[in-house]
Amino acid sequence: MNKNKNTAELILDTAQAIVQDVGFNGFSYSHIAEKIGIRTASIHYHFPNKEDLGEALIARYRKNFIAASVQFDNETSNNLERLRKFTLMYAEPVQDYCTCLGVMLSTDLGALSGKAGEGLAEFLTANLDWLQRVLEDGQREGQLYFEGDASVQAHLFLASLQGAQLLAKSFRDRSRFDRIANGVLSALTVK
């Protein structure tokens, strides 16, 4: 069982890296099998079809985001610092000129199963809910400054980071992500 779990995790790790680079439609089980040196039958054993794999990818991604957001909350009570940590999490895939799984799956939404699409919406909602709470807390505590509703700010923040990932990937220039991320954070510190 432990070996199966390790194989399943290796398949998910490999599939995630591929999706973050070329999208959900840009690979087959044979691509994964070749990268990790197993037969496609082994992949089908863990994930009978690509829809199952997509659902497992997004479920794991959401679970990892929730764990990361709890960690951010536990590491600091400063809401600007929490947003910086969130931004650094979104910067990670940019180092390899990729985007986060959420961005790539959003662009391939039509190819996902209904369950995977729902999982993607749940992942994005988890991001937005966390951002909204941090923004509200930061505004109330005098750490963050913005006009209007925190829900709108959360959407703008997330959309800015996702768009920054796409620009960095398109231009193969991480500094484009950094400029946008820093600009979004700076805008929240101006009275």
Rank of each mutant, 00 (worst) to 15 (best):
N4K: 12
A8F: 00
A15N: 06
F24I: 06
N25M: 12
Y29M: 12
S30W: 06
H31V: 05
I32Y: 01
R39I: 01
T40I: 06
T40F: 01
S42D: 02
I43Q: 04
F47R: 04
N49D: 15
K50F: 00
D52S: 11
R62Y: 00
N74H: 11
E75A: 11
T76Q: 07
T76E: 08
T76I: 08
N79W: 03
L80N: 13
A91P: 00
Q95R: 13
Q95M: 03
T99F: 02
C100A: 11
M104F: 00
D108E: 03
D108I: 01
D108S: 13
D108Q: 04
L109E: 14
A111K: 02
E118T: 10
L124M: 13
T125W: 06
L131E: 05
Q132M: 13
R133W: 01
Q143N: 09
G148I: 11
G148K: 10
D149I: 02
S151G: 15
Q153V: 04
A154E: 02
A154M: 05
H155Y: 10
L156Q: 12
L158M: 13
S160I: 03
L167F: 14
R174C: 06
R176I: 14
F177H: 03
D178T: 15
I180V: 15
I180F: 07
A181K: 08
A181H: 06
S186N: 14
A187H: 11
L188E: 12
L188G: 11
K191C: 00
